[in-house]
Design a protein around this nucleic acid. Structure first.
Lengths: 263, 263
DNA sequence: TCGTTTATGTTCGCAAACGAACATTTAAAA
DNA sequence: TTTTAAATGTTCGTTTGCGAACATAAACGA
């Protein structure tokens, strides 16, 4: 898995003049791109705004390393982040995926400050970065944010558990469908920029296996792909092939995070 | 999987006379059997004591059903509870195990009130039952209990994630070792009362596969078993065969819940 | 005591995924 | 343009676990 260079930092506000007002205006639109930030109470927003930075999250960028304490949490807007466990022999397995519905870095408010997992950008895009201290202070205020984050965490738990089940019982074909649909739900549009090699790393299977499954889906007219670009042609068709795991996770996210659904 | 009848309710204090004092005395010793209850602050203990009930948790008893809202949380003392997902076709897979180090019912303070999982007693014993409302009130007080429960939840998350990884990458032989060791850590003694059929349900594999793996372990002199009783003869030997998943989980529990270790 | 149930042991063919080796095609770099 | 690297396609033999069928033995109930 290639380790890409650190992403360049991009400020939300470009003009130093009228920074306060300006940054608030500019950010409001992009803040809404993350569903957690979108429902942030006004009072909290005021505290966070000076500390929030919109940054690039390039493909393959490692946000968190296993067992390392991080100083920031991340709210993806257009990027998708994969949480994966890497084993001693280098094998890996994705345990959950985080997009614009969530936050990367739950251990920073759960109290552990680190996890045995790695967070890698699975689909390039942008996201907001917030110092962990600000996040923790807000969380410890025991208000609506706290409960929102806890419900999000429970949804994430469901995704992890269902991943365990899916790994146990379902075929690579079905898992690929699940993976495509989960990714699609976290993007606008119908194209994924993602090689089969990368997908194999996420699913913890061989690249050849992904190729075979992808060939089947392409022959069935559900997707079309070439060199790292996958276009979904028939979403309903994918939903017809996927295992129940996808629906279980999606329903639980909808139940626990009842906000304006982007899907 | 047999659904056993509801367990009989057993009060901690048997004598109505001097109930207050008595119950406190009797309970303190048994409360300590659960590592979360053991570190409960005095003030909180006072509130909980009148509401805590020590109950029997017989093998196979379903504590929580998938998607059902429960009115109580459970603190196992001598019992072990398995969290498992049951699929539409009846297949199941364990995603985590909870013993005297933890609590069953995290969704009641996480805010979801239910989960898609089932909680089943995997090893008969006892545990304390507490009304969800008391638990939630204590949690929302945003004190040391809150942080303790959140750290426990993070440890549980690690166990789930590692289960996903293990399901993906490791052999049934290794997974059986992991399962035996995880169970052993949650019991005093070296005997597990557990049929191979039950273990198969937990691991989400065939009973025959468990038999084959168990035969190997017995021939190697690591365990000895007969009709639902498994005796661990060589713990070190098991640790030599288990995959890294066991150590990852154990280390994370030790890191996040630094209390007097019963193991 | 005897028959039934429960727990474990064993085997056989099958399917999915693996590891490895190698071919083909397209994009990017020199 | 030419070369190189990246992404995908394909095949072969092997392993693991599955499904099914059946055997054996210990516990239990009538």
């Amino acid at each position: 898995m290639p380790i890409h260079p650190r992403p360049k930092k991009t400020l939300a506000a470009v003009k130093p003049a009228a920074l306060h007002k300006k940054s608030a205006d500019i950010s409001k639109a992009s803040l809404d791109l993350n569903r957690l930030l979108a429902v942030l109470p006004e009072a909290e927003l005021k505290r966070w705004l000076p500390e929030l930075e919109l940054i690039d999250l390039p493909l393959g960028h490692v946000i968190y390393e296993s067992a390392a304490t991080e100083k920031n949490v991340y709210f993806p807007t257009t990027a998708i982040v994969s949480l994966l466990y890497v084993m001693e022999n280098g094998d890996s397995a994705e345990i959950a995926v985080v997009g614009n519905e969530g936050i990367v870095g739950i251990s920073l408010f759960m109290g552990g400050n680190s996890t045995p997992s790695r967070a890698v950008v699975q689909s390039a895009g942008k996201g907001f970065r917030l110092p962990a201290k600000i996040m923790k202070d807000a969380f410890d205020r025991a208000g609506p944010i706290t409960h929102l984050l806890l419900r999000y965490t429970q949804a994430l738990i469901t995704q992890m558990a269902q991943t365990a089940v899916c790994n146990r019982h379902h075929s690579l074909d079905q898992q690929l469908c699940r993976w495509l649909l989960l990714s699609l739900d976290r993007l606008r549009g119908t194209e994924l920029v993602m090689t089969q090699e990368l997908i194999a790393n996420m699913l913890g299977v061989r690249r050849e296996g992904v190729t075979e499954a992808a060939v089947k889906l392409q022959k069935a007219g559900l997707i079309r792909y070439a060199r790292g670009r996958i276009e979904i042609l028939d979403r309903k068709g994918l939903e017809g092939r996927v295992c129940e795991c996808y629906a279980v996770v999606k329903n639980e996210y909808d139940r626990l995070l009842p906000m304006e659904s982007a899907n």
